[in-house]
Simulated assay, not measured.
Amino acid sequence: MSYQYNGSLVFYETVGCCDQYTTLYAADGKVLCHPDGGLTGRGDGQCADFAKARTEERLVWQDPR
């Protein structure tokens, strides 16, 4: 998925299963943070407001399996 977050285009990558972090990337591919997932489900705490602050959700790619 892509979003606007803090005035910038970002890409959010989910994971398939079980206690793994999701990843939020800047438009240039730099890892910004891990908004959720992990053992607590709260990510790494570096972008705790992502779920509330994101806008302009767009599907970029979906695995057809």
Rank of each mutant, 00 (worst) to 15 (best):
P35L: 12
L24Y: 07
L9Y: 01
D28T: 01
M1P: 00
E13W: 02
D49G: 09
E57A: 14
C18Y: 06
G37A: 12
L32V: 13
G16W: 04
N6Q: 15
N6P: 00
V31T: 15
C18M: 01
E56Y: 01
T55R: 15
P35G: 04
R54D: 01
F11A: 06
V31H: 04
T23S: 14
Y5I: 13
D49Y: 12
R54F: 03
P35T: 04
G38D: 11
D49H: 10
V15H: 14
G29I: 02
G7N: 02
G43S: 06
Q20Y: 12
Q4A: 09
N6Y: 09
D44P: 05
C17E: 12
T40H: 00
Q46R: 14
Y12L: 13
K30M: 06
Y21N: 13
K52H: 06
Y21D: 08
Q62D: 02
R58D: 03
G37Q: 11
Y21M: 13
V10K: 04
T14A: 10
W61L: 13
L39F: 11
R54Y: 03
H34Q: 15
C47M: 05
N6V: 05
H34W: 04
E56I: 00
G38Y: 08
A53H: 08
L39I: 12
D36L: 00
G41S: 02
P64Y: 05
G16M: 04
C17D: 11
R42T: 09
G37Y: 09
A27M: 03
Y12A: 10
E13F: 11
N6W: 07
E56F: 00
Q46G: 06
T23F: 11
V31R: 07
R65I: 06
L32W: 06
D49Q: 12
T40W: 06
C33K: 03
C18S: 08
Y21E: 04
L9H: 08
S2M: 07
G43D: 09
V10T: 13
C17A: 13
T40E: 12
M1G: 00
F50K: 03
R54K: 15
R65H: 14
K30L: 03
L9W: 02
C18D: 10
K30Q: 10
E56T: 06
S2T: 15
V31L: 07
G16L: 11
Y25L: 09
G37T: 07
Q4T: 15
Y3T: 04
D36S: 14
L32A: 07
G45W: 09
V60H: 05
P35H: 04
L24C: 11
G43C: 05
P64E: 15
G38V: 09
E13R: 14
A51F: 11
L9K: 15
F50C: 03
Q20K: 10
V15F: 13
D19L: 01
K52W: 03
A27R: 07
L39M: 09
V31D: 08
Y25G: 00
H34C: 05
R42D: 08
Q4I: 12
L9G: 00
F50I: 13
W61G: 01
V15T: 15
